Simulated scan of single mutants.
Amino acid sequence: MKKSTKIFTGIMLVASLALTACGAKNNTNNGASSPSASAPASPSASADNSGKGFKIAMVTDVGGVNDKSFNQGAWEGLKKLEADTGASVKYLESKEATNYLTNMNQFVRDKYNLTWGIGFLMGDAVKDAATKNPDAQLAIIDNVVDAPNVASITFAENEGSFLVGVVAGLTTKTNKIGFVGGIEIPVIKRFELGFVAGVKAVNPDAKVTVVYTGAFDKADLGKAAAASLYNDKNDIIFHAAGGTGNGVFNEAKERNKTAAADKKVWVIGVDKDQSIEFGDDVTLTSMLKRVDQAVYTVSKELIAGDFPAGKITVLGLKDDAVGLPDTSSKNVSKEILDKVEEYKQKIISGEITVPTAQ
């Protein structure tokens, strides 16, 4: 791919984007759902109707639209687009990997102006759909598809994960910290490598134990992994496992019901501010990943006639596209948050290079 671009330069992130959790996953044939199936974004007071007549859709990976993570964030971005511009938005859930291409092709056949594939695992399906339908406009989150009609949006997850690693390294009482990943793919390795580097930067004596569950949609596997880590005296777990990570929270909440104050365990959430869903009593902080804003911005660029087809966009700390939520101050001391800011500036300036995975 020949060109790269930065879509967040000069664009303020929309802080008012709805972050409330949605309900249970809809069960419909092949993941089909009406546009109103999830909680809609709040209506915009400045709707401009510029998107009237545009149809924009997304296909989830197997985590589903209500994963309380990046699929849900992407859908919230489209719902805000609908409220702000009048564009028609819709999603299809993929119950299994074989649904990816089928769902992509359904939107292409239905003449949608833009179809998003949400997640690294959608790469092959987006590539296939793009190659066979050169007039279709497609986009993907967390992967790079080399095609002239595809916009590829990736994030520097390692940078934001370094910062929550700093929080974990300075907060742990046992010097034992866990990481629970979904499938061991490059995007999740970026979370892992950045997190471990952040912990080690501030607490070289801390041990980070890494566990991969092999799934993004199995809360029971996340719960089992968390139970094993907590039993081994890990007092903080950072998950990057989509819906599987919900099980990590469930295990922590169960333990904290009966734990003494000095035995309390913590979870670091991912993608969204997961304290909103799981509570401040168990969420130490979260590694925000602004999938919502990326989907919103690129979709709005399409409406304006500036779709970044054939380009790669990489979003990191300097774009305010990854980082910690404001709610972190509820459980993280000012001293630690000041240290986080110090490391953030060092990463942005290039003084620190965070390990990554390709």
Rank of each mutant, 00 (worst) to 15 (best):
D292Q: 07
A151W: 07
P308D: 08
I237K: 08
D319I: 02
W75M: 13
L324T: 07
F54A: 02
A130C: 03
Q106W: 05
P40Y: 03
G310D: 07
E184S: 11
Q358L: 00
V314R: 14
L315P: 12
L114K: 00
L163M: 09
I236Q: 05
N27C: 01
G279Y: 10
A226G: 09
A241T: 08
T209G: 06
K95Q: 14
S42W: 07
K289F: 08
K346F: 09
K79E: 14
P308T: 01
G160L: 05
T85V: 05
K176C: 12
V14P: 06
K207D: 14
N105T: 07
T285E: 07
K25H: 15
Q72P: 12
K253R: 13
T171F: 13
N27I: 11
D48Y: 11
S42K: 13
S42L: 12
G53T: 05
S4Q: 08
A41E: 03
T356C: 01
N149H: 06
G194F: 06
D142A: 04
I352P: 10
V180R: 09
A225K: 13
A57R: 02
A41H: 04
G305D: 06
A241L: 10
A37P: 01
S328N: 02
S4M: 00
Y343G: 00
A74F: 12
N71R: 12
E192H: 07
S333R: 07
E254Y: 09
L138W: 12
S349L: 05
V210E: 04
K233A: 14
N49F: 14
K300M: 06
E96T: 15
V164A: 05
G310T: 09
V150W: 06
G310P: 10
V62E: 15
F107E: 05
F216A: 01
Y343D: 03
A156S: 13
L221K: 14
V208Y: 04
